[in-house]
Design a protein around this nucleic acid. Structure first.
Lengths: 345, 345
DNA sequence: CTGAAAGCGCTTACAG
DNA sequence: CTGAAAGCGCTTACAG
């Protein structure tokens, strides 16, 4: 591969001049510039970003640590981040912590060692001990989707309490009194806040809490299935279930269908996360839609602003979720889907 | 941030020794090693991967160019790649070409400039003009999910012809004669091969091709919706539809449900890609399951092997898809789901 | 407007 | 077993 030296030799100038052309330095004679450009063309020269990064303090790379790349909720988020990054000339270094603090820590070290310009993270744990290292090193950091409790960092989240509150309130308005929760881990802010919204809705409507109706999963499909089984196999099962993310919703649906129960007649269900397949589920899923793409864009914009101005005040943004009412909650009961029965899956 | 120099000064040795400890060089006196380790600890030293990469030829980074990060098919693939990379001490540099050759080209330049150890790509175009640059630069490359026609590179794909052939043959065996195709772009090998399998099944069963039943989308949900509308709004609509990927399947389902048609009574459907939500769709989707995670693992392993041995012969692997029969094809018709009617979505 | 020289933080023959 | 020195490919004051 050609280097500045090769280009300089061919163009008959110094390497400093090559660098100046590369960086659009204004005071380069037009004639010199053309010679250099010509030489670059000839040699198919690609400047090494590695060498450049060693010399300069700022890189053109953003680090991104996602807690579960297999969760389709994040694909749209990543897409938003990627679009903003691309539009601003940044590339993405994507890491998947897989909800494992050890992997998260390793990747934070890697990103630090890679001298990324900034990091966006959906942390595996609200205490974020490892994130402290980042912040202390002065690397701009944005917490996305999940908060970092003890750290003063830019944050963009969805109003999880509100989303859960609206979902559960809707079930209550439809007449449900025994509502099960399949929640997420409480050490993750989304898990805890959605549980908080659930409890708030019950309390405000004068319904006592039944701890037996609260099951905590791990935001993955398998746990949704298992927790739904536990809820439905009791003597006094809930008449409705609220699931705290899209994967656990799918797991719960598996369990309900497997038992031959009818939704919403035997058990109603409302899930957090509206996904492209929600309208085509059996029956169409009532869901709390999160502004996923916007979440990603906002996180990326916050990070770019922070990179541009390290002294800006800390910003915390809370985006609004929307309850999308379809059939799984029983709202449209009259329209006949209670006849559908089991689908032989 | 501390550098080798700082550590060397504190430990009272030369920077060369620090480097040797860092790289587990065997001939370092135990006592010296402990001193160095202690100094590193004291300074919370993190070696710069950037500086290291400038000096060494091989980096610990794999580049990954995905054609559409918003397609959940790829999340499991990325997961497979990531697991293998992580287990071997590599990190991932993920790029999303968004089916745009210009973005693909830019990212290839970035990855080259970043001196990644190798690249895995699902190319936007089978001609892969930009991929040639990579190959010519001697960077190990693996084509994944989609082939690169003119290039001699390691490749791992799924047997798309077989998958489509089995799906369509199954519909034929259930009595269908007018089967619509919602296919992918023909300049992408998955699009063309799935169409090939569709045609092969019809031909082998003595059914003539009707070009009016073949609609080409772009592998995204919107086009699945639109093409399904076009197919269903003709005078002589198909009795069954085969969709060539998961997003177009969702789009087609939207169209079918919107028109109040019953699946499979009015129109049967079989889709490429089995996804976690397929069993919970209305009705459960008969689908061609791709070994997505394995696809990712295989691609990563091929790349790591190639990095280790640049002279190894070119390998092309073809993984087997599996037809998962559920209710949307009409196979389980007798079990009563034809009664289900519209869900009021 | 341009060049010579130093330096970013590492690693690696080469001596000893 | 360890150190002095050169070099990876850039950029940037400092001169001129």
């Amino acid at each position: 591969m050609a280097t500045v030296k090769d280009v300089a030799d061919l163009a008959g100038v110094s390497t400093a001049t090559i660098s100046r052309v590369l960086n659009n330095h204004p005071q380069v004679a037009d004639e010199t510039r053309s010679k250099v450009l010509w030489a670059m063309e000839q040699l198919n020269y690609q400047p090494s970003r590695v060498a450049r990064r060693l010399r300069m303090e700022a890189s053109q790379i953003l680090g991104l640590i996602i807690s579960d790349i297999a969760n389709p909720f994040f694909t749209s988020v990543v897409r938003g981040i990627e679009d903003v990054a691309y539009a601003n000339g940044y590339s993405l270094f994507l890491c998947n912590s897989d909800e494992d603090p050890a992997k998260e820590e390793l990747y934070i070290q890697v990103l630090l060692a890679e001298k990324v310009a900034g990091v966006i993270i959906s942390p595996t744990d609200e205490d974020g001990i490892t994130c402290k290292t980042l912040v202390e090193s002065g690397v701009p950091l944005v917490a996305m989707d999940r908060r970092l409790r003890r750290l003063e960092v830019d944050t963009v989240v969805v109003d999880n309490v509100l989303g859960a509150y609206e979902a559960v309130s809707h079930l209550i308005q439809l007449g449900h009194r025994r509502i099960g929760l399949i929640g997420g881990p409480v050490h993750i802010t989304t898990g805890r806040e959605r549980q908080e919204g659930y409890k708030k809705a019950l309390t405000e409507h004068g319904i006592g809490l039944d701890e037996g109706l609260i099951k905590i999963g791990d935001f993955k499909q398998g746990s949704g299935y298992q927790m739904a089984c536990e809820l439905l196999e009791t003597d006094d099962p809930p008449t409705a279930i609220f699931t705290a993310n899209n994967l656990m919703t799918l797991g719960a649906l598996n369990a309900i269908h497997e038992k031959g129960l009818n939704i919403p007649r035997d058990v109603a269900i409302v899930g957090f996360d509206d996904m492209p397949w929600a309208p085509s589920l059996d029956p169409p899923l009532t869901a709390v839609a999160q502004p996923t793409y916007e979440l990603g864009c906002t996180a990326a914009n916050l990070l770019l602003q922070r990179i541009a101005d390290k002294d800006r005040e800390i910003v915390e943004m809370k985006l609004e979720p929307t309850l999308i009412i379809r059939a799984s909650c029983g709202h449209n009961e009259k329209r006949g889907q209670s006849k559908s029965g089991d689908h032989g899956a």
